[in-house]
Design a protein around this nucleic acid. Structure first.
Lengths: 218, 218
DNA sequence: TCAATTATTTAGATAAGCCTAAATTATTTT
DNA sequence: AAAATAATTTAGGCTTATCTAAATAATTGA
């Protein structure tokens, strides 16, 4: 089994690998883990000794197959617990992250699989991210960013790229939620800001917002 | 907040204090924690520095009020999670301990209280132990041991003193479960073994069994 | 291309929690 | 009450995961 810290590193490497493809640099990992580069080098060596990552000095890290499996298992647990918190315990989607960060490290295969069953095998977490199944298979997201839509196009809001409490609270305040149809009424060339229509409301949003909303085009 | 190890020590001290009344010796704690006396001395000093226990060299430890509150909170979480695992996730009562040992350390007041509500404020865990409420109040157990009953007396089985998987599996195998009425048909003076009647079955049990079953006399 | 800058690694500390072995204090036994 | 035994503490180490500061490698740009 892996330590809490090891699991967090594996998860971080996984996220960085998928976000940017290819090896993950020491500094990028340090930034993601909110720690120092020298601490990262230390840990990366330990993970390498355990064959969870492939590491060569000055060349960044990549997850091994075993490392990837471990990372996906942690992500599976994280997302399942998020669903539990929102669907069963009245948490809002902006309150789940911190608690799920703790719950994702609980070690019990039976717990994970029974929780999955109890929640009726959810496919996505409250932020629209796919939940790996017990075999580690992901539903690959077929989605674009709202910022990529052109004037006049429509789509259904299916996920958030930034799931910080601040962003989610902005969305709540403006009644933007997953499953809603969004139409781009206007798009400003200069700053990429948009006027969008949801339900019967029109709303002006900046590029920082639209570039963090995943859309399934209709 | 307290570390995982600190919480486990506080819990252990709490259990030993209530079981034997009065200060807890270093060796007793070492035995309970499955560790060495020297490690206990180390930790007890740290807990004392944080005013969670009162400690004087060679005189054992006692929980302070703050330490007692922390211990009760951990016990509350442990028992709530046990109820969750049995009632919602199809765990048997002999499978919950290990997982609850992990879940009891999750830090989120909202999580604990929403879980309590979700479970409809259970008063007892699957082994019959009382669950402290959000203010730390226990339902004090008004119960005796089956081994204290005399020939001819009856009671309702309301809890187990030993909640090891081995003991619980013995009980399952012999169809002994909480809520059942038990009558002492015979009691052997020599070894305190008993013949008991439950449902329509008669069963011979040794003192080791009867001294680990809590009974509410009828 | 070579000097400056940036990224990364190494060296040496630190803290929490644990260990063994040795020293010290308490308790029993005779 | 002294000697033997048991309980407890101290001293000194170890591991994990972190840090700062210094050294080294890689990259950039003039």
């Amino acid at each position: 089994m892996f330590s809490l810290s090891e699991e967090n590193y594996l998860k971080a490497i996984f996220h960085l690998e998928t976000a940017y493809k290819g090896g993950v640099s020491t500094n990028a990992l340090a930034e993601e883990m909110q720690t120092k580069a020298s601490s990262v080098t230390d840990m990366v060596k330990r993970l390498s000794d355990k064959d969870l990552v492939n590491y060569k000095k000055y060349q960044g890290v990549k997850l091994s197959d075993a490392g990837k499996d471990a990372a996906i298992e942690v992500i599976r647990k994280h997302r399942l617990w998020e669903v539990f918190l929102v669907d069963k315990l009245n948490f809002n989607w902006d309150e789940v992250h911190e608690v799920a960060e703790q719950l994702e490290h609980i070690k019990s295969e039976k717990l994970t699989n029974e929780l999955d069953k109890f929640l009726e095998y959810p496919k996505r977490d409250p932020h629209g991210d796919p939940i790996p199944d017990a075999q580690g298979n992901f539903a690959v997201a077929n989605r674009a960013l709202l910022s990529d839509l052109k004037k006049g196009e429509t789509g259904i809001c299916v996920g958030v790229k930034d799931s910080s409490a601040e962003f989610l609270q902005y969305l709540d305040k403006n009644k933007i939620s997953l499953g809603k149809e969004i139409k781009v009424l206007e798009k400003e060339d200069f700053d990429q800001s948009m006027i969008i229509k949801m339900d019967r409301n029109e709303l002006m949003i900046s590029n920082l917002i639209s570039a963090n909303l995943f859309i399934k085009t209709t």
